[in-house]
Simulated assay, not measured.
Amino acid sequence: MALTVVITGASAGIGRATARMFGARGADVALIARGWAGLQAAADEVEESGARALPLRADVADHRQVEHAAEAAEEALGPIDVWVNSAFTSVFAPFTEIEPDEYARVTDVTYLGFVNGTRAALKRMVPRDHGTVVQVGSALGDRSVPLQSAYCGAKHAVNGFTSSIRTELRHRRSRVHITVVQMPAVNTPQFSWVRSRLPDHPQPVPPVYQPEVAARAVLHAADRPRRKQYYVGASTLATVLANKAAPALLDRYLARTGFDSQQERGLRQETREGNLWHPADAAPGTDHGAHGVFDDRAHARSPQAALARRPALVSGALAGAAAGAAGLVAWRRRGRRPGTAAPWERAG
């Protein structure tokens, strides 16, 4: 029997690539997004693989629309087995240049959209004691960067919210699972249609991966959801570890490099208004596909993906980083005396 999968943000980027891969597996896929051109194109790709597709226009910031979409998905395709939250929006600008209503909108979509999707999924999964929710997270949910404060704040909130829900499910001994896939920089159309007040075109900070790398990780997490989170790309794991070991040093580094590294000089952005309030693919012929404009620098594979399938190695690396950070803090508190070695300098 085919799985029934619901994906928010399915019209482009990671959501689009994930829908295509689930369809290739034979899963029936309900696709949720605001625009129509991308949704219809994504549905066509799923159906080309022989699976059923159901495009559903909905704004994930509105819990009523998400609930109606979930009802429509189950009525047409059957009980939902997997729900993937991927929809988001953002504003690239210093915090002081982001208007309050813009900040609220990013939060409503990028954080509360995940809350609304999770609520609709669990409403159906918990009574059946079956199902999996996969949150598409980000390295920026562990380590914030300049110019993306609204997005970073929302992704941090997703992590905290998901951890709380996970413990509640465990408390009730539920067989419903919830997990997060922490993503690296991905070549999606967001950098062309995001609202921006930067002088140059927004860009992902290298290394950049293709959406298919992210999508494979989402499918893997849906298959093996018992881990609380997965890390995709060596850069994601390195960012998490560096932030645990030396957050102040990382602050200084990002303050020095974070503005220039997120802009591509000489590249013209299609629109600075972006898709914050209105979808970028509302009109026919405006489908953006899964990929952004950085194909020439994006990696189609991630060697670190193998590491993501080895929980013991990841846990060991994180535990080692935490221990190192604790030793560093203790050493700093004591104050370094002449001839005293730092924790990482000691032999044995």
Rank of each mutant, 00 (worst) to 15 (best):
A104G: 05
A33K: 06
D81M: 11
A139R: 12
T89C: 12
Y111D: 03
T96I: 10
P127Q: 11
A154Y: 01
Y111E: 07
P146S: 10
Y151T: 01
F114Y: 10
S149I: 08
H63G: 11
A10L: 03
L140S: 07
A93F: 07
V115N: 09
Q135A: 08
L77A: 02
P79M: 08
P94T: 05
E48N: 14
I14A: 04
A93T: 11
A61P: 01
P127A: 10
A154T: 01
V29A: 05
G117N: 02
D81F: 11
A12T: 15
V66R: 12
P55S: 04
V136M: 08
E99T: 11
G23R: 12
A10T: 05
V84S: 01
A121P: 00
R119K: 10
V82D: 10
N85I: 06
A104H: 12
V84A: 03
P100G: 05
G50K: 13
A27W: 11
V109A: 00
V106S: 02
A70E: 07
L112S: 03
P127K: 11
V46Q: 09
V133F: 00
D129Q: 14
V91P: 06
R52M: 10
P79Y: 05
H68W: 05
R143N: 09
R105K: 11
F92Y: 10
E74S: 00
G50Q: 13
A93E: 12
V126L: 14
F95E: 09
G141T: 01
A154Q: 01
R105H: 03
N85E: 07
A121I: 12
V145K: 14
R57A: 14
K123E: 14
V133P: 00
A73W: 02
S90L: 07
D108V: 11
A53G: 04
A76G: 03
H130E: 08
M21Y: 00
E97S: 14
T110L: 04
R16E: 09
I80A: 02
A58Y: 15
A53Y: 05
R57E: 09
W36Y: 04
A150D: 13
G137V: 04
A154W: 03
T18G: 01
D101N: 06
S49A: 15
A37H: 04
E75Y: 07
T110M: 07
S86R: 06
A51S: 14
P55E: 09
V60A: 00
D62S: 15
A27R: 11
V109W: 01
A72G: 01
E71S: 14
I14K: 06
E74C: 00
R128K: 15
A150H: 04
D62G: 02
V136E: 07
A33N: 02
G26A: 03
T18H: 06
E48L: 14
P55R: 10
L147Y: 12
A121G: 02
D62A: 06
A37T: 07
T118Y: 03
Q40V: 10
R16T: 02
E97R: 15
T132V: 15
S86P: 04
L112A: 03
D28N: 15
Y151K: 04
G15K: 05
A33R: 08
E71I: 11
G113F: 03
E99Q: 10
G50W: 10
E71W: 13
R25M: 03
F22R: 09
L140E: 08
V109K: 02
D44A: 15
R57F: 00
V46L: 11
A27F: 08
A121H: 10
M125F: 05
A120R: 14
E74I: 04
